[in-house]
Write a protein that binds this DNA or RNA. Structure first.
Lengths: 224, 224
DNA sequence: TATTATATGATAGTATTACTATTATATTTG
DNA sequence: CAAATATAATAGTAATACTATCATATAATA
């Protein structure tokens, strides 16, 4: 599994970047440091100028990789969802029982990323936190529909569909497989956020994980 | 009910504004037009300068009401949650049966706002759409914890608590009342958004409402 | 009615952002 | 070694997100 992820390249829509950041050392440093900086200062305060200073490169060089910071966020989050998708596929592929499969899938989708795989320049622990705090900003824009047509959200959509299909496989009579799937994925991010910042609005804490909550929620909804 | 809402003033934390926009004609125009503009152009493109031009007032005059557009968003969304809270309380107060009460509550929290009450300068239909598209930006910031301590999110939190209490009243053994409550409210906004922009990620459409989905989800989770 | 607060408007100014353009200098590749 | 390509350095622009100052209009009060 870890070997597989090591050698894997996540296929990101080429329209998201101008020049593939995986294709050069500078590109990788842009990605690596942007994750650290966005995590530290938040997406709003993060700028290409600051990133340039940090990686001792030039602002204009960064613009040769990404049109703007919104595209960079799309790149980072696409990478994250692609990475999660690999984990989902590898971990559930061999499970024959539909219920076991869905259980495992929910586990993967709702757990906190706790270890950096340390193979690549990408810190998955920080990236997970970025996704929790910033992902919705990538689609809550006036440009969603255009960007959706351009395919900027394909990986995310494919992921939600995979879970939706697992739900259907377990209970074909359930009327809301897509809504339930999107609730698990977006809801999980939200519960993780609440745990950190609005603890009175969630039951999740050190003892109760979002995974527990969603497993309960899903299997009470489905015939199984 | 409508009369009640007409004469009602929603109590918004005074730290959110510098000068109460309800206290003057200019203040009301700021609120009224900002709703229209944010809905039209999105929160990112909206500026106080543009608003000033639109209402034929001065940028600097707007700054005398709100420190910045983030505070204005907090004001608008607080107003919205306060308005929903009144509807919730008035509509469920007299319902004795815990299940009926929760059903009604879910209906109120998940339905689309379709009619502008036309009493005030505030267009609730547009405001509902703003909340769907922009609300999470108000708390997905590096300043959440400070602002939360300042009480900027009290109404929202109170609302979630009210639903959580209704869940507890119906099924005291359910282990995740707060998570379920926050899932209903945030999840509803999300399903409405998906319906508009990512129809393949939801089962909600013209025929199936988010309300149906959440009613099903909640009552399958609870003993009742 | 005159005085004086208070609210609003007009204008200007600043630092920062989000870029674009140009030219110079490395570095890689053929 | 030449030519292509990548990166760096520098400068410049329009817009944003304010702050400051002063003028004027309106309202409250003495």
């Amino acid at each position: 599994m870890e070997q597989l992820l090591q050698s894997l390249k996540i296929g990101i829509n080429e329209k998201i970047f101008i020049k593939d950041p995986e294709s050069s050392d500078l590109g990788k440093r842009i990605v690596e440091e942007s994750i650290i900086m966005i995590h530290q200062m938040g997406f709003e305060s993060f700028t290409f100028r600051k990133l340039g200073t940090k990686i001792k490169s030039n602002e204009s060089s960064i613009y040769r990789y990404f049109e703007n910071k919104h595209k960079l966020l799309l790149y980072l989050t696409s990478w994250y969802w692609g990475w999660l998708e690999y984990q989902l596929v590898f971990s559930t592929n061999s499970i024959p029982d539909a219920k076991d499969k869905l259980t495992k899938a929910i586990e993967i989708m709702t757990r906190e990323t706790k270890e950096d795989s340390a193979f690549s320049h990408i810190n998955e622990v920080l990236l997970n936190k970025i996704v929790i705090n910033e992902y919705s900003k990538s689609y809550l824009t006036k440009e969603v529909d255009t960007e959706n047509k351009e395919g900027y959200f394909v990986i995310y959509k494919r992921l939600i569909n995979r879970i939706s299909n697992m739900i259907k496989a377990l209970d074909s009579s359930y009327p809301y497989p897509s809504s339930l799937s999107s609730t698990i994925i977006e809801g999980s991010l939200h519960q993780h956020f609440l745990k950190e910042h609005f603890s009175s609005l969630t039951d999740c804490n050190e003892n109760i994980s979002p995974t527990e909550y969603f497993i309960d929620l899903v299997f009470k909804s489905l015939k199984s």
